[in-house]
Design a protein around this nucleic acid. Structure first.
Length: 291
RNA sequence: GCUGGGAUGGCGGAGUGGACAAUCGCUCGGGACUGUAAAUCCCGCGUCGCAAGACUACCUAGGUUCGAAUCCUAGUCCCAGCA
């Protein structure tokens, strides 16, 4: 914990230019960019995850693990808190930029439940059970937890298993000593109209194909990484079906918006409107200069 | 031109006399989310209606039947094979 800790968050759906804005702001305000993207943490998945590496700008949060290694929100927060501390030491301001809402919330709001580790033995035991069985089991172990679940979670095996994992863990979750409670967080969200976003996503996918995404796939295949979890997601999953990739990417953007819409702290900027950049800078400047 | 196959919702594709507004998948719309989150999952999707429900649908036009997307006849279009 430290005093006067500030962090700037840049979030929003994919393909809205978050990184570009972050780069710009980092130069203006002496910031350190930290990626909050659940896929960019994987090595060798560069083109498909859209890792941008502008000259002279150091972005943290890329290439944290190999594609066949396990990753989690907790691992992310461990990394992020450390990176943020280093950033403060250098007198810089951290800029957390990305589209993975859960990662951002975990860091900013110190979500403690994610400190409860996974239990492989339990997961193994439960993996073949039906959603009904899982729910009944949870009902038996912790009725209050079970009743508290919404319709969607009650029918989601993965989340039910996690719920059982939480219930069977007899301690409180912890984020570790490095967790930081921030004094001031400025949330900036970039959004675009549906049409605009669709266009941008489609163009970007085409661009990635041109950049040699096929080669990246070949490399991952050769290395035996294609069977790993992260490769089972869009782009990597559907290749070479570019049409499907685009659709999936668009759907992903929609899901991201559902998540971010709930976050009332976000100051939104529509990138389709002229002059938004100036307004962002103005806002950041104001926030930056007040303590 | 002949022969065979087919025309069902935004798309693919079931159904082959009643229980069909039509399995299912995708798209599409909405939503959930606190250790896999670019993941996983939920709801909706003919029209009108908050709902109960009502109404119109399975290429077109007739017919058979108590009853047809399903059977028959004619037509239109598509596909495959042969010429």
């Amino acid at each position: 914990m430290r005093n006067n800790s500030k962090i700037l968050v840049i979030c929003g759906p994919t393909a809205t230019g978050k990184t570009a804005l972050a780069v710009y702001l980092s130069k203006l305000f002496d910031g350190q960019i930290i990626s909050a993207d659940s896929r960019q943490v994987y090595k060798y998945m560069d083109i498909g995850t859209g890792k941008e590496k502008p000259e002279g700008v150091n972005i943290l949060g890329y290439d944290l693990v190999r594609p066949d290694q396990e990753f989690s929100v907790k691992k992310y927060t461990d990394f992020a808190y450390k990176a943020i501390k280093d950033t403060y030491k250098k007198g810089k301001i951290p800029i957390l930029v990305g589209g993975t809402g859960l990662y951002i919330s975990a860091v900013v709001d110190n979500l403690e439940k994610i400190g409860i580790p996974r239990n492989l033995k339990l997961r193994k035991e439960l993996e073949d059970k039906s959603r009904e069985e899982l729910f009944n089991l949870l009902m038996k172990k912790s009725p209050s937890f079970a009743i508290g679940l919404n319709e969607s979670d009650r029918k989601n095996p993965r989340r039910l298993i996690r719920a059982l994992e939480i219930v069977s863990y007899n301690k409180v979750g912890s984020l570790g000593e490095d967790a930081i409670q921030f004094d001031s967080v400025l949330w900036i969200g970039l959004k675009a109209s549906k049409e605009e976003l669709t266009k941008r996503i489609e163009e970007r996918v085409d661009e990635r194909v041109k950049m040699g995404f096929g080669k990246e796939m070949e490399f991952l295949k050769r290395k035996g990484y294609l069977g790993a979890i992260p490769s089972k997601t869009l782009g990597y999953k559907d290749w070479p079906d570019v049409k499907k990739w685009k659709i999936e990417e668009i759907n992903y953007a929609k899901r991201q918006m559902v998540w971010f819409k709930k976050e009332k702290r976000i100051k939104w900027f529509d990138i389709g409107k002229t002059g938004w950049e100036e307004k962002v800078v103005e806002l950041v400047k104001k926030w930056y200069s007040t303590s």
